[in-house]
Amino acid sequence: MPQQKPATRPSAGLRPGRGGLGSIAVITFILIAVAQYMIFMYVPDDATLGLIQRIFYFHVASAWNALLAFGVVFVASILYLAKGERRYDALAYSSAEIGVLFTSLVLITGPIWGKISWNQWWTWDPRLTTTLILWFIYVAYLLIRMAADEPEKRARFAAVFGILGFIDVPIVFFSIRWWRTIHPVVISWQGAAMEKSMLQTMIVSFVAFSFLFVYLLINRLRVEAMQDEVAQLKERLQGTR
């Protein structure tokens, strides 16, 4: 049962302090800079793939962020339905947008890498295909938000779909994997152990991208909070007129 608590300020508790955001911005900047240095200067060229292998650090880290973002959508959606507080809806929405952004990056960097290393832009590899479906699911999530005009209804519908979509993802992944075993993939992912420097770079990229996600998320939440505040001020002005 949806229970709406009386929220005097729907956006209250959304807005992080400026100071916190500043330090996260600095940390993110430094981490991203270090990650860039490692990707382009520190790691040697890959023995077989050469230069193009470096796009992989962006590719995999973006995929990680997308998953992280959609996990947040899932949890925030459940919390919204359970508590009916606006801040969980704002969190789910913000996170979904960022997730779609990083999924798009995965879908752009993947084929670039694939063209060089597999000599074809696209393969119906389970991971790449699941990412594509993931992109469709969360674009659908954003479309639902656009189509429902009334804020509370929009939040409710989006939360329902956010839960449904996330539950669907593993089923999609496994069915695609079994499907590919019938139509064998010629090219397989190299399971070779990574060199030590590559592993280090990968880990730093992951951490840097995770911070980037948090930084973007906080900023996006602040935009939501400001929009709520504007809406409320308008409402109050209307009332006094």
């Binding site: 659908a140 479309l143 639902i144 189509a147 005009d149 209804k153 329902v160 779909f161 979509g165 069915s175």
Partner: peptide, 22 residues
């Protein structure tokens, strides 16, 4: 869900097909 939104007829296939891939 879509029956309760504007643009319901267009929205349904777009949100349904990704979910029913399995």
């Amino acid at each position: 869900l879509t029956a309760n939104t504007k643009a319901s007829e267009v929205l349904l296939p777009v949100i349904l097909f990704p979910i029913i891939i399995p």
